[in-house]
Simulated scan of single mutants.
Amino acid sequence: MTDLPNKAAQYPALAKPHIQLHGTVDDRMYDSFQSQLASAPGDGPLVVSITTLGGDPEMARAMGDSIRLLRDYTGREALFLGKVAVYSAGATFMSAFPVDKRFLTHGSRLMIHERLMTSTVTLSGPLSTLPSTLKAKLNEIEDSIRIQDEGFESLVAGSKVTLDQLKAKATSNWYIEAQEALDLGLVLDVI
């Protein structure tokens, strides 16, 4: 193994994240995020780290919205630090941070995929009511695709990856090593 350059001194704020998230992205992680955010110092860059194999993309979007609102209303810089695994909903959360505010640790991996759905449509009742049931499910699918694509656009904004490239790779779980993420411009640096 070749020696990796130690870039830690270039980014001293990343040494001690104010918010440290790990595990499944779910209601509990959201609650932990909000609690740590409320306890974080009110000035200087806010550093958020995450290690996750995935979870609920809506909870990831909600945490990301809190970061966006903090940035928009206070102008405060927020830095993202992905550690070890930033899979699925973790990448959704990462998309809330501009590319030049994203970092990964050496050996970390991103995994990006399309949203998943498991559903059963039960058709029961008068025939005239059944098309509405099917249309409602189709509307749900189409809106979920729109939400997914909005997140994908945010994830690749400012990088070398196009939305079409991401969408093509996301159909089969795209795993990206930290160095590759750097080469693709998805993160500012690997530390």
Rank of each mutant, 00 (worst) to 15 (best):
V84N: 13
A78N: 07
K101I: 01
M117H: 07
H113N: 08
S124I: 07
L110H: 01
L53Y: 04
K135E: 09
L81T: 11
D56E: 10
Y73W: 01
I67K: 08
F97T: 06
S124W: 13
R115Y: 11
L130H: 06
R68N: 08
L69W: 01
V84A: 12
I67N: 09
T122M: 11
R71S: 15
R76D: 10
K101Q: 15
Y73E: 05
M63Q: 08
T120Y: 05
A60P: 10
E140D: 06
L69S: 07
I50V: 15
E140S: 09
S49M: 13
T120S: 13
M59F: 07
H113F: 03
P126E: 15
M63T: 10
H113P: 00
S124F: 14
E77Y: 05
T74N: 08
V99W: 01
F97K: 04
Y87W: 13
I50S: 03
H113V: 00
T118P: 02
V121G: 08
E140K: 10
H106P: 03
A40T: 10
I67Q: 11
L134S: 09
V121E: 09
P45N: 02
M63Y: 09
Y87F: 15
Y87A: 10
L123C: 10
G125V: 08
D43F: 01
S132C: 04
L130K: 13
P41I: 05
L53R: 14
P45K: 00
G107T: 04
D65L: 08
S88I: 04
I50N: 02
G44P: 12
L69E: 09
A91L: 05
D100N: 14
L134Q: 14
E58N: 11
